[in-house]
Simulated scan of single mutants.
Amino acid sequence: MRNILRMAVGDKWLGIYTSEEGEAFRRTLDEAFAVTSGLRNNIGEWVPWLGRLDVQSFTRRMMRVHEKLDRFSSQILDEHETDRRRCARDGGGEFTATRLEEEMEARLTRGGAKAFILDIIAGGTETGATTMEWAMAELLRRPDAIAATTAELGRVVGRGRWVTERDLPALPYLDAVLKETMRLHPVAPLLAPRHAREDRVVAGYDIPTGTRVLVNAWAVARDPASWPDAPEAFRPERFLAGDAAEDVDVRGAHFELLPFDVGRRMCPAYNLAMKEMAAALANLLHGFTWRLPDGVAPEDVSMEEFFGLAMSRKVPLVAIAEPRLPEHLYAGVD
């Protein structure tokens, strides 16, 4: 999350360790995610006439969050508009400042710029963090998978430094762990809505033109027809060389695995997301020895799901980490 915020809005707005405004911004983002996640329990969505009464205060909470985010977005834009000339001159600066320079030609409205910023944050923070938590949960349920990942990291990286982006292509097992995590736990189980462009018959059902179509990526990724080898099991090895799914990728070419959607509605930042998650997960496993709390067996780890803005864990993961690299490498790590 910190990397995405740094790229999108700058260091000041990262939250803890940076500024008071940044920490308030982070708290507002957390509140926004919490409100969105709770919408499925909004009785007004199921009984429309009760929606006007706002008996659970969802509307009031969303309005408060909207006002806070709008205020923060205005402040961020004002600051970056001031820096725009410097960024154009020096060729540096954060993503938002650079994007605002292009705004003059694209004629993006101020409201559009605010939405653009929040889209980047919403699409690139909670989703990645949720995937990371699912990955750690699955690995803690399979100690042999953690051992295989750390052994690969030891061979490629060694114990004298942290993992960098340059190391990622040489870490196929780590890549397989991420793919398998996204197969079993897609953060967006229902892909972006689509409309049928022509009359079709699918599995015996008539689908007329204009029908709204929702693709259940969660079900497809667990379908025995696509994944005949234990589709419900966490088995990263299925994506390694010599296995049936070794060539299956997440970039939309294989319909049995669509964590980033496909076609024109595919996530435009999937490449960045894969690198960010891979680097973060690699360093978590390379830098620390992980275990479950005393008295908790691997099979006791809850894997219940909760669907909100992203499909997160219903029960937060609790694990114990112990440093495993030389002490001097942890200086300045937060």
Rank of each mutant, 00 (worst) to 15 (best):
E256D: 14
A217C: 11
D249F: 12
P259L: 08
R235E: 13
P224L: 11
L281F: 11
P228R: 15
A233V: 07
V250M: 14
A230M: 00
H254P: 02
T211D: 07
L258I: 09
V248Q: 12
N216A: 06
H195V: 07
A241I: 04
A245W: 08
Y205A: 13
V220G: 05
P268T: 05
K275Q: 14
G242C: 09
A233F: 01
P236W: 12
A280L: 15
G252T: 10
P228C: 03
R235V: 14
R235C: 13
V202K: 08
E256L: 10
A245L: 15
P259H: 02
F260M: 01
L281A: 10
R265P: 01
D199M: 02
G242R: 12
A244I: 02
A219S: 14
G263T: 03
N271I: 09
E232Q: 14
H254W: 03
Y205F: 14
P231A: 07
R235K: 07
A233C: 05
P231I: 01
M266H: 11
D223K: 04
L257E: 06
T209Q: 15
R194F: 02
D229I: 04
E232P: 00
Y270F: 15
D261Q: 13
E232I: 00
I207F: 07
A221S: 15
D199N: 12
F260W: 01
A241W: 01
A278W: 04
N216L: 05
P208F: 09
G263N: 03
V262G: 03
G263D: 04
P268S: 11
Y205M: 13
L257R: 08
A278I: 03
V201G: 02
E237V: 03
D249L: 06
D199C: 01
F239T: 11
V262N: 04
A221T: 07
E276L: 15
P268G: 07
Y270T: 02
M266G: 14
P236H: 11
